[in-house]
Design a protein around this nucleic acid. Structure first.
Lengths: 160, 160
DNA sequence: GTTTTTGCAAAATGTTTGCATAAAG
DNA sequence: CTTTATGCAAACATTTTGCAAAAAC
């Protein structure tokens, strides 16, 4: 557990997600509660994309009394402080992930459901282009791709 | 009204949205109902981005008995047949627009609320890159940008 | 001790569904 | 005449909210 925390800090350049979250909230005059600690811990460890129910379920394994309202309220706070990103991978459920490391985006394979990340280099270019051509200053980009991943393309006879 | 229809046909290369929709649905063994005609007409004329409530409200001006269920059911059909696009411009409401003309994406100004369209050239490049680098075949891209438009940037003292 | 946060239950929101009736083909 | 689509109301899933009790500071 101690080791996990050290690894997490190394992965994100010396400051764990939990520590960043704690100081961001404390800095805004908010309180660091047991529930927020639990939820942040689950989100950080998930290393991926949780929807609200998964987050709720996992958090209750650590603290069975934690309520669904608290999950929603905490996600709202974390979104507001830009500590988590909300993804719209599917029509049905939103997914959330810790904002750690470089900006990236997601490809969802419609065949196997796998989510792959890709980096934001091309998206940076798009941002520049929007400023140059439209005078538009980008604040946030919501970009999700769906299609067929390499594995599924290879394993399926090309649909004619 | 007749003139509107002619203009619409010219704008989309000889086949109005309504005619395309009609033949797509008829081709799939579905019926061309009064309600579908009304909804398609509203969507086509809107020339922009309607959310469900706006669509419902406008459609009821033409046919006061048309129900909200029918709006949802019709949008589902149109989405399935790729006759409308569903946009995720804001957190709260989905928006829908007729799929007419070239692919394009949307920038939402967080200051004045204006939605501006931009073309898909850069997005095409992204698509190629994903195939080249990840072997991923793109089926659909959900891309929405928010930020500050040129007008608002100009009229506001640069926030320091 | 004061203020914020929580858990719970209730309400609000947005969307879907079952079913009898109406309309389309 | 047969099948599909509609309107209505009820069901559903998800998210938000009011409030008293608990926890943080």
């Amino acid at each position: 557990m101690q080791a996990d925390r050290v690894n997490a800090e190394q992965a994100s350049g010396g400051l764990s997600f939990r520590k960043r979250a704690k100081s961001a909230l404390r800095g805004a005059g908010m309180r660091w509660t047991q529930q927020r600690d639990t939820l942040i811990d689950v989100i950080e460890k998930a290393q991926g994309h949780l929807d609200v129910d998964e987050l709720y379920r996992l958090a209750r394994q650590q603290d069975p009394r934690l309520s669904l309202s608290t999950v929603y309220r905490t996600l709202a706070v974390l979104k507001r402080h830009r500590l988590v990103d909300e993804l719209h991978l599917t029509e049905e459920h939103h997914h959330y992930e810790a904002k750690i490391g470089a900006q990236h985006f997601h490809m969802l394979c419609t065949s196997c459901g796998t989510v792959t990340e890709f980096s934001g280099a091309l998206v940076d270019r798009l941002q520049q282009e929007l400023r140059r051509e439209h005078g538009f200053t980008v604040e946030s980009i919501d970009l999700d791709v769906s299609g067929v991943c390499a594995r599924c393309t290879a394993s399926q006879p090309a649909a004619s």
